[in-house]
């Protein structure tokens, strides 16, 4: 058979594509459950990290998550949305929705005997190179930060990537979201500077200015719609 003929070439490429395509489809389907399990465990791990809880392995993560965390979804008014599952809400898509009234807002309620009840809110924004995201845990008064967790996709190591280090995340602890009854999310400023308003602030990362700003605007954008819900928590607590 003539190997240089067009017919041979076309048949060859079709056979190749079908064989490779079939092999890939089979591998992808076969490994899907394992991958989903990993992705879910990773998300749970991140949520638990916001309340300083780090179970040793994936099985423990899932157990701890299921036993201590209850997820609810609320809307901007602070009312519970019934037909949504907190864990399945895509925070990335929600945070891009300009009309905050349309956003679905997941809240993870953590409780155990030692630490009491904490409210964990998801965050999503843009750093310098790509997306950054995180979780911030609030005390039951809906204002005091109990812990924070941030991560990123490709920030510069040693500079912007420092947001995933505990040193940076610890800076948020004990900051207040409400100042004299007014809702002002914590902001991030250059070390040594002060914000214009009287909101609580943490020092940013030197050399990671754009990533630090990304964290600040992520906090603004993602926490703002929770205002009504958090106010309710504050009032319940008084």
């Amino acid at each position: 058979m003539n190997k240089q003929s067009s017919t041979y070439t076309i048949i060859y490429i079709i056979v190749l594509v079908v064989v490779v395509g079939a092999a890939l489809a089979w591998v992808a389907t076969a490994l899907k459950p394992e991958q989903t399990k990993n992705a879910n465990a990773d998300k749970m791990k991140q949520i638990l990290a916001a309340v300083h809880c780090a179970p040793a392995n994936n099985t423990l993560v899932a157990e701890t998550f299921d036993s201590r965390i209850k997820g609810i979804v609320i809307d901007e008014k602070g009312d519970i949305v019934d037909n949504a599952v907190a864990f399945d809400v895509n925070v990335a898509d929600q945070s891009k929705e300009a009309d905050t009234a349309k956003r679905l807002l997941p809240v993870y309620i953590y409780s155990d005997d030692e630490t009491g009840t904490k409210y964990i809110l998801p965050l999503y924004g843009q750093g310098l190179w790509g997306p950054i995201w995180g979780y911030i845990a609030l005390d039951s008064d809906g204002s005091t930060v109990y812990g924070a967790y941030f991560s990123h996709q490709g920030e510069t190591p040693g500079l912007g990537a420092e947001i995933e280090k505990p040193e940076f995340q610890e800076r948020f602890v004990n900051k207040e979201l409400f100042k004299d009854g007014e809702f002002l999310p914590v902001t991030v400023v250059k070390a040594g500077q002060r914000p214009q308003g009287n909101e609580d602030y943490v020092d940013g990362i030197s050399g990671g200015t754009i990533t630090s700003k990304g964290v600040a605007s992520m906090l603004d954008n993602c926490l703002a719609p929770y205002k009504n819900y958090l106010e309710k928590l504050t009032n319940n607590n008084d």
Partner: peptide, 10 residues
């Protein structure tokens, strides 16, 4: 890539 996602996620 699929194998890594399934068995070495981090």
């Amino acid at each position: 890539n699929q194998l890594l996602l399934a068995y070495a996620y981090d």
